[in-house]
Design a protein around this nucleic acid. Structure first.
Lengths: 236, 236
DNA sequence: CCAATTTTGTTCTCACGTTCACAAACTCCT
DNA sequence: AGGAGTTTGTGAACGTGAGAACAAAATTGG
């Protein structure tokens, strides 16, 4: 029916797989930097910290890029994954909120080397405007629309305080941004068709704390079971 | 068999639920700050950005803390969740790697208010040692063991460059740290019994890029299907 | 006190993701 | 050429999670 190129753009890649593709990409880059030209699924799985069956199944969703009995060509597979993710060209990105975290993000060299280019830093604070961070001038939040249109920006990063997050997101969506990476500790609601990913530092720590507490309570409980003592407060 | 307190410490809470509990906790805090004393699962679900059936099922894993026909007492539920996560007391945390990101983390006020206390900042760079960041002196990485033992630290944060991440993690594990939050763009391997959570900025952006590319290709493909043009490069 | 209303906690079903296990396909060696 | 040895790609079994739907339990009003 529809004319297609060699790879079928209709296939759906499971979300869980999509989340691991960047890990594989990084592992392949590391292998290539070590001068390795070919690797087995087992080698790559170890480098990526997953099990090899999962890796093979993940890759099978992209197509058949390996050779049975041989393995994968590192550069070829790396290119295929990069193309699948869409990082063979650079994506322009704007960062809103140039506080501590915004500074760190602006200075993060990993963006540039992994397919992203920070085209603007924005803040609402007049005192920050005009300052240069990581070689980029901080501009007024009001300039968002002009910048997005000029550079055809699709991805926005929110690094503001929590109270500002929703209004910044609303503004981004109104202007046509369709992917948002939110570092503010707040839930932002967006319409269908807009993707939001959230990175929340204290949530990550709280998840660790939960498991840490369970480890401690588990040890307590084991001791308690032996000593027949009531388990309650844990590490008091 | 074993003596237990009122809540059954044996129950397992699904990992997906654990990951949402901090979100509920934050939403409850926001509601409490607005002076709201009681809320329904629907109210809380909206505040937390989830669906109410999922919220109720999540809470049911903790126990039965609501009242049918009424809803949940905000303060009571908040306390129960905080207790379940283990953030009714502060957890001491060490941050290793005081670069851009380490600075931002050290200055992040959300840690303190959500159950964590930064007890030390460590770096291998002699030039940084002795400087004060967010009121805490940067100390030599070698002091890790003494600090961990003094403060009974269980949680470590890695904010170093990728190359250093594994050796820092190894050292942390050897000293007795059992939970690691890794911001370095590298896979770190740890033995069983140690939890690692990874926060990777460029991976998050790459996941967004994938979906962004699909949106663009979907639009292209729709146009192409009408025009009978081959779909391949996408946004070239 | 009883019926109507509200809202929780739980059951059931379906979808998604992970892991195992193996046939297919390739190379290498004799 | 043919068999032995590797390694991929995938089918099938299993486990976890999401969402709909509803019974149980509380309040409210007459």
């Amino acid at each position: 029916m529809t004319t297609r190129s060699s790879t079928d753009a209709n296939r759906v890649i499971p979300e869980a797989t999509v989340a691991r593709l960047p890990v594989y990409l990084r592992a392949l880059t590391a292998l290539a930097d070590s001068g390795i030209r070919t690797c087995s699924s087992e080698d790559l799985a170890i480098a990526a910290g997953v099990n090899s069956a999962k890796l093979r199944k993940d890759l099978s969703h992209l197509g058949s890029y390996g050779t049975r009995g041989v393995g994968y060509d590192v550069d070829y597979l790396r290119y295929q994954i990069a193309r699948e993710i869409g990082v063979t060209q650079d994506w322009p990105v704007v960062i809103v909120g140039i506080g501590n975290l915004g500074h760190a993000l602006a200075n993060y060299s990993g963006f540039r080397s992994r397919g992203f280019r920070v085209v603007a830093l924005l803040d609402a604070d007049p005192q920050l405007i005009g300052q240069t961070v990581a070689g980029v001038a901080v501009r007024a939040f009001d300039e968002l629309e002009a910048i997005v249109q000029e550079h055809d920006v699709a991805i926005g990063v929110i690094a503001t305080p929590a109270v500002a997050a929703q209004s910044v997101a609303d503004r981004m969506v109104a202007i046509g941004i369709t992917s948002i990476l939110n570092f503010a500790p707040a839930v932002v609601a967006v319409p269908d068709g807009v993707d939001v990913r959230k990175v929340d530092l204290s949530i990550e720590l709280q998840i660790l704390a939960y498991h840490e507490q369970r480890k401690a309570n588990g040890a307590d409980a084991a001791a308690a079971a032996a000593a027949a003592v009531t388990v309650d407060g844990g590490a008091a």
